[in-house]
């Protein structure tokens, strides 16, 4: 394959990593029935924290851990205020997003625009040399966090649909009362999953400041948290479709940059930044207007149930609600 194309694909895999990790984290949270709308702010704050801690202590592991903890704490604020104070998850999440974003600017002002450490490049032996379709270079010549993002896709797909815990998680956001009757400790597991989801969002922040965008400056992640939220909807709360969404959006950006550089396309870069929203809108129109159902007629009878399952995009039924027994 063309070496330019291969390196472009490798770039896409790298640049999509934080989006992927964050959206899979939000997937876990929302499947548990909780909306963590603070994604954008959390990513910024944890990116700043990861960078600042690494810079002061010199330890990457410590930096990443702090980022994960920041993500968890913010997520736990969302669910605690929902469970204990009966506050609206969306309102709390939205306020937290604004707070965290400003907090990152304030706390990070001493660390802005300074050179710091990077997560070491660690190509995987043997696999990195696969020449076929450039697989080696595209997937196996990155650092640990990028590998983790790839692993996460497969892991989530397996875990959600093939394990008992995954089944339990799917039930939790769908109908917590039914989960409770089946012996699931609803509130406990909601806290656990929300913490895990928040931790992943924090990790996404660390991926930005320690690998993909390297360093810290105000508004480092450029609203990518919102995009991750949109990808969860676009991906219909399913791990593989979410991965597809993340790669699609990063791919579109890469394509636009390439076309612009080669002067094949005469349009401003802002248009490309709008694509995720337009895509979300089109997907929502397509799925909820009945258009999808109508398209199904074109699918052969045999494949229709599978196609229907793929096309449907219903959010977990209990999303954003507080669990009460009766």
């Amino acid at each position: 394959m063309d070496p330019v194309l291969i390196s472009t694909f490798a770039d896409i895999v790298r640049n999509a990593a934080p989006l992927l990790i964050a959206s899979q984290g939000e997937l876990i949270t929302e499947r548990a029935g909780v909306v963590n709308l603070s994604l954008d702010g959390t990513i910024l704050l944890s990116a700043m924290a990861a960078f600042a801690v690494t810079l002061t202590t010199g330890s990457l592991v410590l930096g990443i851990s702090v980022a994960v903890v920041v993500g968890m704490v913010v997520a736990l604020i969302v669910i605690s205020s929902s469970v204990f104070l009966k506050l609206d998850q969306i309102a709390v999440g939205f306020i937290l997003t604004l707070l965290c974003a400003d907090l990152s600017t304030f706390l990070g002002r001493d660390y802005a625009n300074r050179a710091g450490k990077e997560i070491p490049y660690a190509p995987i032996p043997i696999l990195k040399d696969i020449k076929f379709l450039g697989i080696g270079e595209i997937f196996f010549q990155h650092n640990v966090l990028i590998y983790f993002s790839l692993f996460l896709i497969v892991f989530m797909g397996f875990w959600l649909y093939h394990t008992r815990f995954g089944l339990q998680l799917r039930g939790l956001g769908e109908r917590p009362q039914a989960a409770y009757v089946r012996g699931v400790r609803v509130q406990f597991w909601r806290f656990v999953y929300v913490a895990i989801g928040g931790g992943l969002v924090g990790l996404a922040g660390a991926t930005y400041s320690l690998s993909v965008r390297l360093g810290w400056k105000e508004n480092l992640t450029l609203g990518n948290g919102w995009i991750a939220l949109a990808i969860v909807i676009f991906g219909a709360w399913r791990p593989y479709r979410i991965a597809f969404g993340a790669y699609l959006i990063v791919g579109l950006r890469a394509l636009a940059l390439y076309l612009q550089k080669e002067q094949l396309l005469d349009l401003p870069v802002q248009i490309i930044n709008m694509t995720p929203w337009v895509l979300m809108l089109l997907t929502l129109i397509f799925v909820s207007s009945g258009l999808a159902e109508r398209t199904l007629v074109l699918v052969p009878e045999k494949w229709r149930p599978a196609a229907q399952r793929f096309l449907r995009a219903n959010p977990p039924a209990a999303l954003g609600t507080n669990f009460e027994k009766s």
Partner: peptide, 12 residues
């Protein structure tokens, strides 16, 4: 659980 299959409901 409405969006799950009968079997998944049975297992959960």
């Amino acid at each position: 659980f409405a969006p799950l299959t009968a079997l998944e409901n049975y297992i959960s």
